[in-house]
Design a binder for these strands. Structure first.
Lengths: 258, 258
DNA sequence: CGACTAGTTGAGGCCAGTCAATGTTGGTGG
DNA sequence: CCACCAACATTGACTGGCCTCAACTAGTCG
Protein backbone atom coordinates (compact mmCIF):
# COMPACT_ATOMS: atom_id res chain seq x y z
CA UNK A 1 0.00 0.00 0.00
CA UNK A 2 1.52 3.22 -1.12
CA UNK A 3 0.21 6.52 0.19
CA UNK A 4 2.02 9.80 0.46
CA UNK A 5 -0.53 12.08 1.95
CA UNK A 6 -3.15 11.94 4.63
CA UNK A 7 -6.62 11.53 3.25
CA UNK A 8 -8.59 14.70 3.62
CA UNK A 9 -12.17 15.59 3.04
CA UNK A 10 -12.55 19.12 1.83
CA UNK A 11 -15.57 21.03 0.64
CA UNK A 12 -15.06 22.18 -2.92
CA UNK A 13 -16.50 24.79 -5.13
CA UNK A 14 -16.51 24.60 -8.86
CA UNK A 15 -13.55 26.76 -9.83
CA UNK A 16 -14.24 29.17 -12.65
CA UNK A 17 -11.17 31.22 -12.98
CA UNK A 18 -11.91 33.39 -15.92
CA UNK A 19 -13.91 35.43 -13.46
CA UNK A 20 -12.30 36.74 -10.34
CA UNK A 21 -11.91 33.83 -7.97
CA UNK A 22 -14.72 33.25 -5.56
CA UNK A 23 -13.59 33.22 -1.99
CA UNK A 24 -14.95 30.65 0.33
CA UNK A 25 -14.61 30.23 4.03
CA UNK A 26 -14.49 26.76 5.42
CA UNK A 27 -17.28 26.47 7.94
CA UNK A 28 -15.99 29.44 9.86
CA UNK A 29 -12.61 27.72 10.18
CA UNK A 30 -9.91 30.24 9.49
CA UNK A 31 -6.47 29.27 8.42
CA UNK A 32 -3.70 30.07 10.81
CA UNK A 33 -0.09 30.03 9.72
CA UNK A 34 1.13 29.23 13.20
CA UNK A 35 -0.96 26.11 13.35
CA UNK A 36 -0.15 25.07 9.78
CA UNK A 37 2.24 22.16 9.43
CA UNK A 38 3.82 23.82 6.44
CA UNK A 39 4.74 27.09 8.10
CA UNK A 40 8.46 26.42 8.00
CA UNK A 41 8.49 25.53 4.32
CA UNK A 42 6.10 28.18 3.16
CA UNK A 43 6.05 31.95 3.13
CA UNK A 44 6.04 32.55 6.91
CA UNK A 45 9.46 30.93 7.42
CA UNK A 46 11.38 32.68 10.16
CA UNK A 47 8.61 35.10 11.08
CA UNK A 48 8.20 36.09 14.71
CA UNK A 49 4.88 35.10 16.34
CA UNK A 50 3.48 38.60 16.18
CA UNK A 51 4.52 38.93 12.53
CA UNK A 52 2.91 35.60 11.76
CA UNK A 53 -0.28 36.83 13.30
CA UNK A 54 -0.22 39.83 10.99
CA UNK A 55 0.39 37.57 8.02
CA UNK A 56 -2.54 35.48 9.16
CA UNK A 57 -4.81 38.47 8.85
CA UNK A 58 -3.90 38.78 5.20
CA UNK A 59 -4.18 35.10 4.48
CA UNK A 60 -7.71 35.05 5.64
CA UNK A 61 -9.05 32.79 2.97
CA UNK A 62 -8.56 29.30 1.77
CA UNK A 63 -9.94 28.00 -1.41
CA UNK A 64 -10.58 24.50 -2.64
CA UNK A 65 -9.64 23.69 -6.20
CA UNK A 66 -10.96 20.52 -7.68
CA UNK A 67 -8.85 18.11 -9.69
CA UNK A 68 -8.40 19.37 -13.25
CA UNK A 69 -9.67 22.83 -12.37
CA UNK A 70 -7.70 25.92 -13.22
CA UNK A 71 -6.47 28.30 -10.56
CA UNK A 72 -5.34 30.94 -13.03
CA UNK A 73 -4.67 31.07 -16.72
CA UNK A 74 -2.64 33.18 -19.15
CA UNK A 75 -3.93 36.72 -19.31
CA UNK A 76 -5.71 36.56 -15.97
CA UNK A 77 -5.08 39.71 -14.01
CA UNK A 78 -2.57 39.18 -11.28
CA UNK A 79 -4.06 39.83 -7.89
CA UNK A 80 -2.61 37.25 -5.58
CA UNK A 81 -0.05 34.58 -4.93
CA UNK A 82 -1.25 31.17 -3.90
CA UNK A 83 0.27 29.01 -1.20
CA UNK A 84 -0.50 25.36 -1.74
CA UNK A 85 -1.88 23.96 1.48
CA UNK A 86 -2.94 20.61 0.20
CA UNK A 87 -2.67 18.84 -3.12
CA UNK A 88 -0.59 19.26 -6.24
CA UNK A 89 -0.58 21.72 -9.12
CA UNK A 90 1.01 21.75 -12.53
CA UNK A 91 1.85 24.93 -14.40
CA UNK A 92 1.51 24.83 -18.15
CA UNK A 93 2.76 27.14 -20.86
CA UNK A 94 0.81 27.17 -24.12
CA UNK A 95 2.11 27.85 -27.61
CA UNK A 96 -0.07 29.60 -30.20
CA UNK A 97 -0.42 26.35 -32.13
CA UNK A 98 -1.85 24.50 -29.17
CA UNK A 99 1.20 22.60 -28.05
CA UNK A 100 1.70 22.74 -24.34
CA UNK A 101 4.65 22.36 -22.06
CA UNK A 102 4.40 21.64 -18.37
CA UNK A 103 6.88 23.94 -16.69
CA UNK A 104 6.28 23.09 -13.07
CA UNK A 105 4.93 20.55 -10.63
CA UNK A 106 4.11 22.07 -7.27
CA UNK A 107 3.61 20.43 -3.89
CA UNK A 108 2.20 21.71 -0.60
CA UNK A 109 4.14 24.58 0.94
CA UNK A 110 5.06 26.02 -2.41
CA UNK A 111 3.98 29.42 -3.67
CA UNK A 112 2.66 29.68 -7.18
CA UNK A 113 1.58 32.59 -9.32
CA UNK A 114 4.80 34.57 -9.23
CA UNK A 115 5.03 34.68 -13.00
CA UNK A 116 2.11 37.07 -12.92
CA UNK A 117 3.71 39.91 -11.00
CA UNK A 118 4.67 41.69 -14.20
CA UNK A 119 2.15 44.00 -15.74
CA UNK A 120 0.57 41.63 -18.25
CA UNK A 121 -0.92 39.27 -15.73
CA UNK A 122 -0.28 35.58 -15.58
CA UNK A 123 1.81 33.91 -18.25
CA UNK A 124 0.94 30.30 -17.60
CA UNK A 125 -1.91 28.16 -16.44
CA UNK A 126 -2.06 26.50 -13.04
CA UNK A 127 -4.15 23.33 -12.89
CA UNK A 128 -4.84 21.12 -9.91
CA UNK A 129 -3.63 17.55 -10.39
CA UNK A 130 -5.84 16.38 -7.54
CA UNK A 131 -8.38 17.96 -5.25
CA UNK A 132 -6.36 20.70 -3.63
CA UNK A 133 -6.48 23.69 -1.40
CA UNK A 134 -4.65 26.99 -1.62
CA UNK A 135 -4.21 29.97 0.67
CA UNK A 136 -5.05 33.16 -1.07
CA UNK A 137 -2.38 35.86 -0.67
CA UNK A 138 -3.61 39.19 -2.09
CA UNK A 139 -0.45 40.69 -3.45
CA UNK A 140 -1.14 44.32 -2.64
CA UNK A 141 -1.66 43.51 1.01
CA UNK A 142 1.26 41.11 1.04
CA UNK A 143 3.49 43.76 -0.42
CA UNK A 144 2.37 46.27 2.15
CA UNK A 145 3.05 43.86 4.98
CA UNK A 146 6.42 42.91 3.50
CA UNK A 147 7.19 46.60 3.58
CA UNK A 148 6.76 46.54 7.34
CA UNK A 149 8.37 43.14 7.95
CA UNK A 150 11.90 42.77 6.58
CA UNK A 151 11.88 39.02 7.13
CA UNK A 152 8.78 38.64 5.00
CA UNK A 153 10.30 40.88 2.36
CA UNK A 154 13.38 38.68 2.28
CA UNK A 155 11.21 35.57 2.03
CA UNK A 156 9.43 37.03 -0.96
CA UNK A 157 12.69 37.75 -2.75
CA UNK A 158 13.97 34.32 -1.83
CA UNK A 159 10.90 32.60 -3.23
CA UNK A 160 11.17 34.48 -6.50
CA UNK A 161 14.83 33.68 -6.75
CA UNK A 162 14.21 30.03 -5.93
CA UNK A 163 11.79 29.84 -8.82
CA UNK A 164 14.47 31.18 -11.13
CA UNK A 165 16.94 28.58 -9.92
CA UNK A 166 14.46 25.78 -10.33
CA UNK A 167 13.73 26.89 -13.86
CA UNK A 168 17.43 27.00 -14.66
CA UNK A 169 17.85 23.46 -13.39
CA UNK A 170 14.94 22.46 -15.56
CA UNK A 171 16.59 24.04 -18.60
CA UNK A 172 19.69 22.03 -17.89
CA UNK A 173 17.56 18.90 -17.71
CA UNK A 174 15.73 19.65 -20.93
CA UNK A 175 18.76 20.85 -22.83
CA UNK A 176 21.48 18.45 -21.80
CA UNK A 177 20.08 15.23 -20.39
CA UNK A 178 19.05 11.89 -21.87
CA UNK A 179 15.54 10.57 -21.40
CA UNK A 180 16.67 8.14 -18.71
CA UNK A 181 18.51 10.84 -16.80
CA UNK A 182 15.47 13.07 -17.00
CA UNK A 183 13.19 10.50 -15.45
CA UNK A 184 15.71 9.59 -12.77
CA UNK A 185 16.18 13.25 -11.88
CA UNK A 186 12.45 13.77 -11.80
CA UNK A 187 11.91 10.88 -9.41
CA UNK A 188 14.79 11.81 -7.12
CA UNK A 189 13.63 15.39 -7.07
CA UNK A 190 10.14 14.33 -6.06
CA UNK A 191 11.58 11.99 -3.44
CA UNK A 192 13.53 14.82 -1.86
CA UNK A 193 10.55 17.12 -1.82
CA UNK A 194 8.26 14.51 -0.29
CA UNK A 195 10.87 13.88 2.35
CA UNK A 196 11.01 17.59 3.16
CA UNK A 197 7.25 17.41 3.66
CA UNK A 198 7.58 14.52 6.06
CA UNK A 199 6.45 11.83 3.65
CA UNK A 200 8.38 8.80 2.55
CA UNK A 201 11.09 9.63 0.02
CA UNK A 202 11.09 6.10 -1.32
CA UNK A 203 7.40 5.40 -1.81
CA UNK A 204 4.98 7.83 -3.33
CA UNK A 205 2.13 8.19 -5.75
CA UNK A 206 2.66 10.18 -8.89
CA UNK A 207 0.03 12.81 -9.40
CA UNK A 208 0.74 13.14 -13.10
CA UNK A 209 -0.23 10.89 -15.95
CA UNK A 210 2.47 9.45 -18.17
CA UNK A 211 1.62 12.12 -20.69
CA UNK A 212 2.04 14.89 -18.15
CA UNK A 213 5.35 13.52 -16.94
CA UNK A 214 6.44 13.30 -20.56
CA UNK A 215 5.45 16.90 -21.23
CA UNK A 216 7.26 18.05 -18.12
CA UNK A 217 10.41 16.19 -19.15
CA UNK A 218 10.29 17.09 -22.83
CA UNK A 219 9.52 13.50 -23.90
CA UNK A 220 6.63 11.46 -25.26
CA UNK A 221 4.37 9.39 -23.09
CA UNK A 222 5.45 6.10 -24.65
CA UNK A 223 9.06 6.89 -23.86
CA UNK A 224 8.20 7.54 -20.22
CA UNK A 225 6.26 4.32 -20.03
CA UNK A 226 9.12 2.34 -21.54
CA UNK A 227 11.62 3.96 -19.20
CA UNK A 228 9.57 3.00 -16.17
CA UNK A 229 9.52 -0.60 -17.33
CA UNK A 230 13.23 -0.55 -18.03
CA UNK A 231 14.17 0.98 -14.68
CA UNK A 232 11.97 -1.61 -13.04
CA UNK A 233 13.58 -4.47 -14.96
CA UNK A 234 16.97 -3.18 -13.92
CA UNK A 235 15.88 -3.27 -10.29
CA UNK A 236 16.05 0.45 -9.59
CA UNK A 237 12.42 0.81 -8.70
CA UNK A 238 8.98 -0.74 -8.65
CA UNK A 239 6.10 0.79 -10.57
CA UNK A 240 2.47 -0.07 -10.59
CA UNK A 241 0.58 2.56 -12.46
CA UNK A 242 1.30 5.73 -10.54
CA UNK A 243 2.57 4.06 -7.40
CA UNK A 244 6.35 4.24 -7.33
CA UNK A 245 8.78 2.61 -4.93
CA UNK A 246 12.40 3.59 -5.25
CA UNK A 247 14.50 0.53 -4.48
CA UNK A 248 17.96 1.89 -5.10
CA UNK A 249 18.20 5.66 -4.94
CA UNK A 250 21.99 5.52 -4.97
CA UNK A 251 21.98 3.66 -8.25
CA UNK A 252 19.49 6.16 -9.64
CA UNK A 253 21.75 9.00 -8.61
CA UNK A 254 24.57 7.18 -10.32
CA UNK A 255 22.58 7.11 -13.54
CA UNK A 256 22.65 10.89 -13.50
CA UNK A 257 26.33 11.23 -12.69
CA UNK A 258 27.11 10.44 -16.25
CA UNK B 1 28.97 45.62 -43.33
CA UNK B 2 27.00 44.43 -40.38
CA UNK B 3 27.30 46.14 -37.03
CA UNK B 4 24.83 46.25 -34.22
CA UNK B 5 26.56 48.30 -31.63
CA UNK B 6 28.55 51.47 -31.53
CA UNK B 7 32.24 50.80 -31.17
CA UNK B 8 33.44 51.77 -27.75
CA UNK B 9 36.80 51.93 -26.15
CA UNK B 10 36.63 50.99 -22.53
CA UNK B 11 39.33 50.55 -19.94
CA UNK B 12 39.25 47.06 -18.55
CA UNK B 13 40.53 45.38 -15.50
CA UNK B 14 41.31 41.71 -15.28
CA UNK B 15 38.21 40.24 -13.69
CA UNK B 16 38.90 37.78 -10.92
CA UNK B 17 35.55 36.97 -9.49
CA UNK B 18 36.38 34.42 -6.89
CA UNK B 19 37.46 37.39 -4.84
CA UNK B 20 35.11 40.22 -4.19
CA UNK B 21 34.85 42.27 -7.37
CA UNK B 22 37.22 45.16 -7.60
CA UNK B 23 35.46 48.41 -8.17
CA UNK B 24 36.87 50.82 -10.67
CA UNK B 25 35.95 54.33 -11.53
CA UNK B 26 36.26 55.47 -15.08
CA UNK B 27 38.54 58.45 -15.11
CA UNK B 28 36.33 60.31 -12.70
CA UNK B 29 33.40 59.80 -15.04
CA UNK B 30 30.43 58.70 -13.02
CA UNK B 31 27.51 56.88 -14.48
CA UNK B 32 24.23 58.68 -14.43
CA UNK B 33 21.01 56.87 -15.04
CA UNK B 34 19.33 59.97 -16.37
CA UNK B 35 21.95 60.36 -19.06
CA UNK B 36 22.05 56.65 -19.88
CA UNK B 37 20.44 55.60 -23.13
CA UNK B 38 19.12 52.48 -21.51
CA UNK B 39 17.27 54.15 -18.67
CA UNK B 40 13.84 53.23 -20.01
CA UNK B 41 14.68 49.57 -20.51
CA UNK B 42 16.64 49.11 -17.35
CA UNK B 43 15.92 49.30 -13.66
CA UNK B 44 15.11 53.04 -13.45
CA UNK B 45 12.06 52.73 -15.72
CA UNK B 46 9.36 55.10 -14.65
CA UNK B 47 11.34 56.74 -11.88
CA UNK B 48 10.86 60.45 -11.22
CA UNK B 49 13.95 62.64 -11.74
CA UNK B 50 14.60 63.00 -8.04
CA UNK B 51 14.23 59.24 -7.51
CA UNK B 52 16.58 58.60 -10.38
CA UNK B 53 19.12 60.85 -8.75
CA UNK B 54 18.88 58.76 -5.60
CA UNK B 55 19.31 55.58 -7.61
CA UNK B 56 22.34 57.16 -9.21
CA UNK B 57 23.99 57.51 -5.85
CA UNK B 58 23.72 53.78 -5.34
CA UNK B 59 24.89 52.90 -8.81
CA UNK B 60 28.08 54.76 -8.32
CA UNK B 61 30.32 52.24 -10.01
CA UNK B 62 30.79 50.77 -13.37
CA UNK B 63 32.98 47.84 -14.04
CA UNK B 64 34.53 46.56 -17.23
CA UNK B 65 34.46 42.84 -17.84
CA UNK B 66 36.66 41.46 -20.55
CA UNK B 67 35.49 38.92 -23.10
CA UNK B 68 35.47 35.43 -21.60
CA UNK B 69 35.81 36.75 -18.07
CA UNK B 70 33.45 35.72 -15.34
CA UNK B 71 31.28 38.22 -13.50
CA UNK B 72 30.12 35.73 -10.88
CA UNK B 73 30.13 32.00 -10.53
CA UNK B 74 28.19 29.37 -8.60
CA UNK B 75 28.73 29.67 -4.89
CA UNK B 76 29.86 33.29 -5.03
CA UNK B 77 28.25 35.28 -2.28
CA UNK B 78 25.42 37.40 -3.53
CA UNK B 79 26.09 41.06 -2.96
CA UNK B 80 24.79 42.85 -5.98
CA UNK B 81 22.76 42.81 -9.12
CA UNK B 82 24.42 43.84 -12.34
CA UNK B 83 22.91 46.06 -15.00
CA UNK B 84 24.50 45.46 -18.37
CA UNK B 85 25.52 48.80 -19.79
CA UNK B 86 27.44 47.55 -22.74
CA UNK B 87 28.15 44.15 -24.20
CA UNK B 88 26.64 40.71 -23.85
CA UNK B 89 26.68 38.03 -21.17
CA UNK B 90 25.78 34.38 -21.10
CA UNK B 91 24.67 32.59 -17.97
CA UNK B 92 25.71 28.98 -17.64
CA UNK B 93 24.54 26.20 -15.35
CA UNK B 94 27.01 23.42 -14.65
CA UNK B 95 26.27 19.79 -13.88
CA UNK B 96 28.48 17.79 -11.54
CA UNK B 97 29.82 15.77 -14.44
CA UNK B 98 31.04 18.85 -16.28
CA UNK B 99 28.27 19.23 -18.82
CA UNK B 100 27.08 22.76 -19.12
CA UNK B 101 23.88 24.38 -20.26
CA UNK B 102 23.61 27.99 -21.29
CA UNK B 103 20.45 29.28 -19.66
CA UNK B 104 20.52 32.88 -20.74
CA UNK B 105 21.89 35.39 -23.19
CA UNK B 106 21.76 38.93 -21.88
CA UNK B 107 21.95 42.22 -23.72
CA UNK B 108 22.43 45.81 -22.54
CA UNK B 109 19.71 47.10 -20.27
CA UNK B 110 19.14 43.72 -18.69
CA UNK B 111 19.73 42.92 -15.05
CA UNK B 112 21.58 39.75 -14.19
CA UNK B 113 22.42 38.04 -10.95
CA UNK B 114 18.90 37.61 -9.63
CA UNK B 115 19.35 33.89 -9.19
CA UNK B 116 21.67 34.71 -6.30
CA UNK B 117 19.17 36.45 -4.05
CA UNK B 118 18.49 33.23 -2.16
CA UNK B 119 20.76 32.39 0.73
CA UNK B 120 23.21 30.09 -1.03
CA UNK B 121 24.65 32.72 -3.31
CA UNK B 122 24.76 32.50 -7.05
CA UNK B 123 23.59 29.37 -8.81
CA UNK B 124 25.03 29.95 -12.25
CA UNK B 125 28.00 31.54 -13.91
CA UNK B 126 27.85 34.79 -15.84
CA UNK B 127 30.48 35.17 -18.56
CA UNK B 128 31.07 38.10 -20.89
CA UNK B 129 30.70 37.16 -24.55
CA UNK B 130 32.53 40.32 -25.57
CA UNK B 131 34.25 43.17 -23.76
CA UNK B 132 31.43 44.52 -21.64
CA UNK B 133 30.52 46.89 -18.91
CA UNK B 134 28.12 46.51 -16.01
CA UNK B 135 26.66 48.84 -13.42
CA UNK B 136 27.15 47.50 -9.97
CA UNK B 137 23.95 47.52 -7.87
CA UNK B 138 24.71 46.61 -4.25
CA UNK B 139 21.61 44.72 -3.25
CA UNK B 140 21.39 45.88 0.35
CA UNK B 141 21.38 49.51 -0.71
CA UNK B 142 19.05 48.79 -3.61
CA UNK B 143 16.63 47.05 -1.28
CA UNK B 144 16.73 49.99 1.11
CA UNK B 145 16.03 52.45 -1.65
CA UNK B 146 13.27 50.27 -3.05
CA UNK B 147 11.75 50.42 0.39
CA UNK B 148 11.48 54.17 0.03
CA UNK B 149 10.50 54.22 -3.66
CA UNK B 150 7.44 52.16 -4.54
CA UNK B 151 8.13 52.46 -8.26
CA UNK B 152 11.58 50.99 -7.81
CA UNK B 153 10.16 48.23 -5.66
CA UNK B 154 7.66 47.40 -8.36
CA UNK B 155 10.43 47.40 -10.95
CA UNK B 156 12.39 44.92 -8.91
CA UNK B 157 9.45 42.57 -8.63
CA UNK B 158 8.75 43.00 -12.32
CA UNK B 159 12.30 42.14 -13.27
CA UNK B 160 12.28 39.00 -11.17
CA UNK B 161 8.95 37.97 -12.60
CA UNK B 162 10.16 38.67 -16.14
CA UNK B 163 13.06 36.32 -15.58
CA UNK B 164 10.64 33.61 -14.55
CA UNK B 165 8.57 34.13 -17.67
CA UNK B 166 11.60 34.06 -19.90
CA UNK B 167 12.73 30.83 -18.32
CA UNK B 168 9.31 29.31 -18.84
CA UNK B 169 9.39 30.25 -22.50
CA UNK B 170 12.78 28.66 -22.72
CA UNK B 171 11.44 25.46 -21.19
CA UNK B 172 8.73 25.41 -23.81
CA UNK B 173 11.38 25.83 -26.48
CA UNK B 174 13.58 23.08 -25.09
CA UNK B 175 10.78 20.70 -24.31
CA UNK B 176 8.47 21.02 -27.26
CA UNK B 177 10.17 22.51 -30.28
CA UNK B 178 12.12 21.08 -33.21
CA UNK B 179 15.68 22.16 -33.90
CA UNK B 180 14.58 24.43 -36.73
CA UNK B 181 11.92 26.08 -34.62
CA UNK B 182 14.43 26.63 -31.86
CA UNK B 183 16.85 28.43 -34.09
CA UNK B 184 14.12 30.51 -35.70
CA UNK B 185 12.77 31.50 -32.29
CA UNK B 186 16.24 32.35 -31.10
CA UNK B 187 16.91 34.63 -34.06
CA UNK B 188 13.53 36.34 -33.91
CA UNK B 189 13.91 36.84 -30.20
CA UNK B 190 17.30 38.46 -30.69
CA UNK B 191 15.90 40.59 -33.49
CA UNK B 192 13.18 41.92 -31.23
CA UNK B 193 15.58 42.69 -28.44
CA UNK B 194 18.01 44.47 -30.72
CA UNK B 195 15.14 46.49 -32.07
CA UNK B 196 14.11 47.49 -28.56
CA UNK B 197 17.67 48.71 -28.08
CA UNK B 198 17.49 50.82 -31.19
CA UNK B 199 19.59 48.54 -33.37
CA UNK B 200 18.55 46.90 -36.58
CA UNK B 201 16.24 43.94 -36.03
CA UNK B 202 17.20 42.41 -39.36
CA UNK B 203 20.98 42.63 -39.29
CA UNK B 204 23.10 41.77 -36.33
CA UNK B 205 26.21 39.99 -35.22
CA UNK B 206 25.87 36.91 -33.08
CA UNK B 207 27.96 37.12 -29.98
CA UNK B 208 27.87 33.39 -29.40
CA UNK B 209 29.80 30.65 -31.14
CA UNK B 210 27.89 27.84 -32.82
CA UNK B 211 28.63 25.70 -29.83
CA UNK B 212 27.19 28.28 -27.44
CA UNK B 213 24.08 28.71 -29.52
CA UNK B 214 23.75 24.94 -29.58
CA UNK B 215 24.07 24.69 -25.83
CA UNK B 216 21.53 27.45 -25.33
CA UNK B 217 19.06 25.70 -27.65
CA UNK B 218 19.68 22.18 -26.40
CA UNK B 219 21.32 21.08 -29.67
CA UNK B 220 24.76 20.20 -30.98
CA UNK B 221 26.96 22.66 -32.80
CA UNK B 222 26.88 20.72 -36.06
CA UNK B 223 23.11 20.83 -36.02
CA UNK B 224 23.13 24.59 -35.57
CA UNK B 225 25.62 24.98 -38.38
CA UNK B 226 23.54 22.83 -40.73
CA UNK B 227 20.39 24.73 -39.81
CA UNK B 228 22.01 28.04 -40.65
CA UNK B 229 23.00 26.76 -44.06
CA UNK B 230 19.56 25.32 -44.63
CA UNK B 231 17.72 28.47 -43.64
CA UNK B 232 20.06 30.36 -45.91
CA UNK B 233 19.44 28.00 -48.84
CA UNK B 234 15.72 28.42 -48.29
CA UNK B 235 16.14 32.18 -48.53
CA UNK B 236 15.08 33.05 -45.00
CA UNK B 237 18.36 34.66 -44.05
CA UNK B 238 21.97 35.28 -44.94
CA UNK B 239 24.77 34.07 -42.70
CA UNK B 240 28.43 34.72 -42.85
CA UNK B 241 30.07 33.41 -39.77
CA UNK B 242 28.39 35.34 -37.00
CA UNK B 243 26.92 38.06 -39.16
CA UNK B 244 23.24 37.38 -39.72
CA UNK B 245 20.82 39.15 -41.99
CA UNK B 246 17.17 38.18 -41.67
CA UNK B 247 15.62 38.34 -45.12
CA UNK B 248 12.13 37.13 -44.38
CA UNK B 249 11.12 37.45 -40.77
CA UNK B 250 7.50 36.66 -41.63
CA UNK B 251 8.47 33.34 -43.11
CA UNK B 252 10.61 32.63 -40.06
CA UNK B 253 7.67 33.36 -37.83
CA UNK B 254 5.64 31.02 -39.96
CA UNK B 255 8.16 28.26 -39.34
CA UNK B 256 7.33 28.51 -35.68
CA UNK B 257 3.57 28.55 -36.09
CA UNK B 258 3.64 24.86 -36.69
C1' DC C 1 -22.66 -2.98 -21.25
C1' DG C 2 -20.24 0.53 -24.18
C1' DA C 3 -17.46 4.56 -24.10
C1' DC C 4 -13.63 6.61 -22.40
C1' DT C 5 -9.17 7.35 -20.22
C1' DA C 6 -4.74 5.62 -18.87
C1' DG C 7 -1.07 2.68 -19.64
C1' DT C 8 1.88 -0.90 -22.00
C1' DT C 9 4.23 -2.83 -25.78
C1' DG C 10 5.87 -3.61 -30.60
C1' DA C 11 7.57 -2.31 -35.31
C1' DG C 12 9.55 0.96 -37.98
C1' DG C 13 11.13 5.70 -39.21
C1' DC C 14 13.36 10.02 -38.75
C1' DC C 15 15.56 13.82 -36.61
C1' DA C 16 19.32 15.08 -34.43
C1' DG C 17 23.67 13.20 -32.57
C1' DT C 18 28.33 11.23 -33.39
C1' DC C 19 32.56 10.82 -35.66
C1' DA C 20 35.63 12.57 -38.82
C1' DA C 21 37.79 15.35 -42.44
C1' DT C 22 38.55 19.87 -44.09
C1' DG C 23 38.28 24.83 -44.44
C1' DT C 24 38.47 29.42 -42.31
C1' DT C 25 39.68 32.93 -39.12
C1' DG C 26 42.24 35.39 -35.74
C1' DG C 27 45.83 35.97 -32.50
C1' DT C 28 50.79 35.41 -31.28
C1' DG C 29 55.52 35.42 -31.62
C1' DG C 30 59.69 34.93 -34.31
C1' DC D 1 55.41 40.52 -42.19
C1' DC D 2 54.60 35.93 -42.29
C1' DA D 3 54.32 31.29 -40.15
C1' DC D 4 52.08 28.84 -36.99
C1' DC D 5 48.59 27.31 -34.00
C1' DA D 6 44.26 27.13 -31.84
C1' DA D 7 39.57 28.12 -32.03
C1' DC D 8 35.69 28.27 -34.87
C1' DA D 9 32.92 26.62 -38.60
C1' DT D 10 31.25 23.65 -42.39
C1' DT D 11 30.10 19.38 -44.50
C1' DG D 12 29.58 14.34 -45.17
C1' DA D 13 28.58 9.59 -43.78
C1' DC D 14 26.62 6.94 -40.49
C1' DT D 15 24.18 5.80 -36.06
C1' DG D 16 20.93 5.60 -32.65
C1' DG D 17 17.67 7.45 -29.31
C1' DC D 18 13.48 8.91 -29.19
C1' DC D 19 9.21 9.58 -31.86
C1' DT D 20 5.24 7.84 -34.52
C1' DC D 21 1.76 4.83 -35.39
C1' DA D 22 -0.85 1.19 -33.91
C1' DA D 23 -2.74 -2.64 -31.33
C1' DC D 24 -4.08 -4.24 -27.06
C1' DT D 25 -5.24 -4.38 -21.88
C1' DA D 26 -7.19 -2.71 -17.63
C1' DG D 27 -9.88 0.22 -14.94
C1' DT D 28 -13.77 3.62 -14.36
C1' DC D 29 -18.12 5.66 -14.88
C1' DG D 30 -22.72 6.54 -16.52
Amino acid sequence: MVSNRPSARVPFQAAQCTESPTIIEFGGLRTHCNSCGLRNLCIPTGLAPEAMRQLDQIISHRRGVRKRDTLYRPGDAFTALYAIRLGTFKTVVLAEDGREQITGCHLPGEIIGMDGIGEQGHACQAIALEDSEVCFLPFDRLEKLAHALPVLQANLYRLLSRDIRRDQDMMMLLGSRSAEERLALFLLNLAGRYQALGYSPSEFVLRMTREEIASYLGLKLETVSRLFTRLQEEGFLQVEGRAVKLLDATALRHLIGH
